[in-house]
């Protein structure tokens, strides 16, 4: 099977199973919903402090949601003994990684897009004209989180204490993604000119590229038996 066909089949398989049981997206969504509720109780905000805190709140919520979703991305393969078949399949291991990664980006981005109106609702944001830029930031940061998260999910899925190990490995290494995402979201929500925060988008894009390439190469060693 050729490379891109493998990627397409991996994404299609994950999408179909997600549409049938809706486990991943719904658990991510309701978890994030709870986080947003807690935040809106914890901070009573006026317009000014909301501008200060909003980007941080958004990315703490999305980061935790990502941990819930990404950490489980290889779990169905292990539960159904499919890991061995993926290892034995005569296809490029990198393509398997990219397929899983693309599926994760889709799921996480979908959850973020569903959740964003809730932020607008609870925190009274005024963002309609800034939506395209915010979506671009979401996309770039989600790619970075998923590039690392997909690799670490494969790394931790077969070990004891999987739920603990996954965030312990992912969070320190994702520091640049969080800094870049928070700073660029702040710029976009404030309506600053792009020149003031454009370099954060560049940082996110560079991070995405580096870790997609490195993880693509290293994934072979994880699935190798």
């Amino acid at each position: 099977m050729n490379f891109f066909k493998v990627i397409r089949w991996m994404v299609w398989k994950d999408l179909v199973s997600e549409i049938r049981n809706r486990e991943n997206i719904s658990s991510m969504f309701f978890f994030a919903f709870a986080v947003i509720l807690i935040f809106s109780f914890s901070f009573s905000m006026d317009a000014r402090s909301s501008r200060e805190l909003m980007p941080g709140i958004i990315w703490v919520a999305f980061g935790f949601t990502g941990i819930i979703g990404l950490g489980k991305s290889f779990l169905p393969e292990v539960q159904n003994d499919c890991m061995e078949y993926l290892q034995m399949a005569p296809v490029s291991k990198g393509a398997i990684y990219l397929g899983k990664f693309a599926g994760n980006v889709l799921f996480l981005l979908a959850v973020e897009i569903i959740l964003f109106p809730l932020f607008i609702l609870f925190f009274n944001l005024d963002v309609l004209d800034k939506l395209p830029m915010v979506l671009l930031i979401f996309l770039l940061a989600t790619i970075g989180l998923s590039a690392l998260g997909t690799l670490f999910s494969a790394l931790t899925v077969q070990i004891r204490a999987r739920e603990v190990m996954f965030p312990i490995l992912l969070l320190p290494l994702a520091v640049p993604v969080f800094i870049g995402a928070v700073e660029s979201t702040r710029g976009a929500l404030n309506g600053d000119p792009l020149a003031l925060y454009g370099h954060w988008l560049e940082l996110l894009a560079i991070f995405d590229m580096i870790f997609m390439i490195v993880a693509f190469w290293l994934f072979e060693f994880i699935l190798d038996e």
């Binding site: 690392l148 800094i179 940082l203 490195v214 993880a215």
Partner: peptide, 14 residues
């Protein structure tokens, strides 16, 4: 290997 690639990026972003 992932950590070794990541550390310089952490340094620059901070």
């Amino acid at each position: 290997i992932i950590g070794f690639v990541d550390l310089p990026i952490v340094h620059f972003s901070v």
